[in-house]
Amino acid sequence: MEDQGTSIPPVFSLGLVEVTNTVIVTWGILALTGVFCWLLSTRLRLTPSPLQVAIEGVVLAIEDAVSAVAPQHAREIMPFIGSLWIFLVIANLCGLIPGVHSPTRDLSATTALALLVFLSTHWFGIRIQGLKTYLQHYLSPSPILLPFHLISEITRTIALAVRLFGNMMSLEMAALLVLLVAGFLAPIPILMLHIVEALVQAYIFGMLALIYVAGSIQSHQLRYPPKE
C-alpha cells in the first residue's frame, strides 16, 4: 500500500536521471498544452469563436486576478502566476483519469513548484525594485526582524509545497482506500470531491504565490509610496 500511495518509483532511467511517472505525466501535460496553445494561436481572430471566447475569458480572468493584487506589474508576473494556475488545475485533475497519477501528489513536483515560487519572488522583487531596495525590506521595520523574515521565507515555501502535496496525495489515497474497501462505483463521491479540491488547491497555491510575489514587489512601494 505504501508503494501504491506515496512512493513514486522511476519508470526508466537516463544515466543518473530517473524518470518517474510524475515527470512523464508532466511531459504529457506539456505536450498537450503546447499543441493546444499552438493550434489556438494560429486560429485567433478579431471576431472570436466560442472556444476563443472561453480561452480569452480564462486569460482575462487570470490577468484581472493578478491586476487586483499587483496592478502596476500585472503584465510582468501574470505569465508565471497564470502558468501555475493552469498547470496545477490540469495536474490536479489528472488524478481523475484512470491509471494516471496527479503530478502534484509527488512531493518532488510540489517542492519544485514551491522553489520556483521562492526564486521568482526574489527575482521579481530584485528586478522591479532593485537589489538594494529589495534587500532593505528584510531590515524593516527593524533589523532585529531579519531572522524572522528569513525563517518566514523558508517556512512558507515548505508550507506551500507540503500543503499541495498533502492535499492531493490524501485525496488519491482516500479514493484508493474507498475503492479497495467499498468496490468499483463507491469512490465516485470522493472523485467529485477531488474535482473541487483540485480547483481549490490550484487556486490557493497560485493565489499564495501571487501574494508572495506581489508582496516582494510592493513592500518598498507600500512603505514609501512614489511622490506624484
Binding site: P10, E18, V23, I55
Partner: peptide, 24 residues
C-alpha cells in the same frame, strides 16, 4: 527525488515559455 525535482523545475520553466509564447 532530485531527478524528478530538477525535471519538474525544467518542465515548469518550459511550460511558462510555451504558455507565454503561444497563449498569453
Amino acid at each position: 527525488n532530485w531527478s524528478t525535482f530538477l525535471l519538474e523545475v525544467l518542465n515548469f520553466v518550459i511550460l511558462i515559455w510555451i504558455l507565454k509564447r503561444f497563449l498569453y
